[in-house]
């Protein structure tokens, strides 16, 4: 145990500042243009940040950071340390960036009881608070639609039903939509740089340090589940959730895409997603699709279920069900 700790320490020392030989070689390969870009980065993207403790070496490391799946364990922990330094510099806060791997033999699924959803939008609030979404400009992963009873035509839905009238209103039903974590995700296909992919537990994630911000994925998504950082996100310091995951709720930057990840920072530790916990009506059921005794499997096998836009063959892992 002690030895392991020592090893970890060694790795940490070796990787600080995280600029390994591999990245160095690549740096040479990319050459002059890159150095120009770093200067540009300092002038441009660095401007809104406070780079006092986040030195030139860190910025260099950030620029040349490799794709998440291409990095070794040590490289990732180096990168995570650098990112934590950046958050410290930017927010003056110790944000912990985790890297919990998926559980083996687990594929997450979600079911939502449309009879129980009353349109309180508590899930939206829970999600924003948990996932460090920008408050200004506002980013929300979940959209609750208000529909007339008797029609599921989304085009007739109200996205902005007002917060001064009590819900549920007579004759209305409510349909929350978030990322459906498709098993055949069109967004992953669309990404030109593989910045988004499906994890072994079925969750579609984004490497925010690799995304180039082309928004191809947002066009491809049939559920309008992806959100873009049109400017530097703003979160009040006291509202930042310091328990984060590299592929999920760590604070994002300007110009990258983000999305719901079924709260892998929680669910990969066995906890339930924030929207599930925030729901006051118990409309949400979450669990392991591969476990035949799980609650989600009970719902899928015994209830009348449907998925949105099933005809597109995206195989969402998000179901709607009725009592």
């Amino acid at each position: 145990m002690k030895k392991q700790k020592e090893n970890q320490l060694k790795i940490k020392i070796k990787n600080r500042p995280d600029f390994s030989r591999r990245t160095a070689l690549k740096a040479l390969g990319t050459g002059v243009a890159a150095v120009g870009a770093v200067t540009a980065g300092r002038a441009g993207f660095g401007k809104t940040e406070v780079p006092a403790e986040y030195g030139l070496m860190d910025q260099f490391g950030e620029f040349f950071q490799q794709h998440y799946k291409k990095m070794s364990k040590e490289e990732i922990s180096g990168v995570i340390e650098r990112i934590e330094r950046k958050y410290k510099a930017k927010y003056d806060l110790d944000v912990k960036v985790g890297d919990t791997p998926p559980f083996p033999g687990v594929v997450f699924g979600y079911a939502l009881n449309i009879n129980k959803c009353k349109g309180y939008r508590e899930c939206v609030r829970g999600c924003v608070e948990e996932n460090n979404q920008s408050r200004d400009p506002q980013i929300q992963y979940i959209r609750v639609l208000e529909l007339d009873r008797g029609s599921l035509n989304l085009e007739k839905s109200e996205h902005y039903y007002d917060d001064q009238t009590d819900v549920p209103k007579d004759g209305k039903m409510y349909l929350p939509i978030q990322c459906h974590q498709c098993d055949n995700p069109p967004c992953v296909k669309a990404c030109p740089v593989e910045a988004t992919w499906k994890e072994p537990d079925g969750v579609v994630v984004v490497d925010y340090n690799w995304c180039i911000g082309c928004r191809m994925c947002a066009n491809a998504c049939p559920y309008w589940a992806r959100r873009f950082n049109w400017s530097e996100p703003v979160i009040p310091k006291d509202e930042i959730n310091p328990e984060t995951h590299y592929l999920s709720n760590r604070p994002r930057e300007k110009g990258v895409m983000e999305k719901c990840t079924f709260c892998i920072q929680r669910t990969r530790k066995g906890e339930l997603p924030a929207c599930h916990q925030a729901c006051p009506t118990g409309a949400r059921v979450f669990g392991n699709l591969l476990d035949v005794n799980s609650e989600i499997r009970y719902v899928l096998e015994n209830k009348d279920i449907f998925r949105l836009k099933e005809e597109l063959n995206t195989e969402p892992k998000f179901w709607y069900y009725t009592d």
């Binding site: 990319t30 243009a33 890159a34 870009a37 540009a40 980065g41 441009g44 993207f45 620029f63 794709h67 030109p192 740089v193 910045a195 690799w210 995304c211 180039i212 911000g213 082309c214 928004r215 873009f228 950082n229 300007k254 110009g255 990258v256 895409m257």
Partner: peptide
């Protein structure tokens, strides 16, 4: 049109 033109090299 890109959000992160500084990362064009990722392509």
């Amino acid at each position: 049109d890109m959000g992160r033109p500084d990362r064009l090299w990722h392509m």
